[in-house]
């Protein structure tokens, strides 16, 4: 197929054709879709917008990637309620129940909490126990443990490290994964967090508060977790 004798070069129109195709090819591949566009569309139905646009549930939020945001301060203005995602649990299925020590004072439930307790310690110290549940795996154990670690300023851990960090508790047929997270500064907060996956939902039991107080609460918290069981609605 390869010619043995190439004739001398002549500026032949056929070669302009090849050059044209090459330039066209290069030009096309250089095309970008980077222009700002503007257009007019019919207003979206309220039903097709994320639920938070129509249901103003304050404070807590579910993020698009399944990670949860827990509030530490009031949202700044009305528009901030728009952060609320569509996955806020309104489960009507089986629920979990628990038995808390009498010295743990129940607090009013917020929009998202299934259970809420104030746990007093010595010298007026106070820890908070929150119980929440969300549909789905909510990012899984690792993502949620790393979320808690982030709240304490700790670097994320890997899946292998998580396996070492988790204390597994079996309670009434449920498998509960408990982690104990302390910041490097003992004066800072400490978190005892437990995750339970049940019936397509993830339940979070989380004690947070001063490091010293939360440390003393660990045995009582393990007992508390062992009281968790399934109850029909």
């Amino acid at each position: 197929m390869c010619p043995q004798n190439i004739p001398a070069f002549v500026p032949y129109p056929r070669y302009f054709f090849i050059c044209g195709i090459s330039a066209f090819t290069l030009g096309l591949t250089g095309c970008g879709r980077t222009k700002v566009q503007s257009y007019r569309v019919p207003k979206e139905n309220a039903a097709s917008l994320p639920s938070a646009m129509t249901t103003a549930v304050p404070i807590s939020a579910t993020l698009g990637n399944g990670a949860l945001i827990e509030p530490v301060m009031p949202l700044p203005n009305a528009s901030a309620t728009a952060i609320l995602g569509p996955k806020v649990s309104k489960a009507n299925g089986p629920v979990l129940t628990w038995k808390a020590p009498t010295e743990w004072a129940p607090k009013p439930l917020g929009a998202m909490r299934k259970g809420s307790f104030a746990i007093p310690g010595e010298g007026g110290a106070l820890a908070d126990l929150s119980i929440t549940s969300f549909p789905g795996a909510v990012g899984g154990d690792l993502a949620n443990v790393n979320r808690w670690r982030g709240q304490l300023g700790l670097i994320p851990i890997t899946g292998a490290e998580l396996a070492d960090a988790v204390l597994r508790i079996n309670a009434n047929g449920l498998t509960i994964n408990l982690v104990d997270l302390s910041s490097t500064d003992p004066a800072q907060a400490r978190i005892l967090g437990a995750l339970v996956e049940y019936d397509g939902a993830m339940w979070f039991f989380k004690i947070s508060g001063p490091g010293e107080l939360v440390g003393t609460l660990k045995p009582a918290f393990v007992n508390f977790l062992q009281s968790v069981k399934v109850s029909s609605p």
Partner: peptide, 10 residues
């Protein structure tokens, strides 16, 4: 009330 004017920035 009826339409939205959208500016889309890639």
């Amino acid at each position: 009330a009826k339409v939205d004017d959208v500016v889309s920035i890639p």
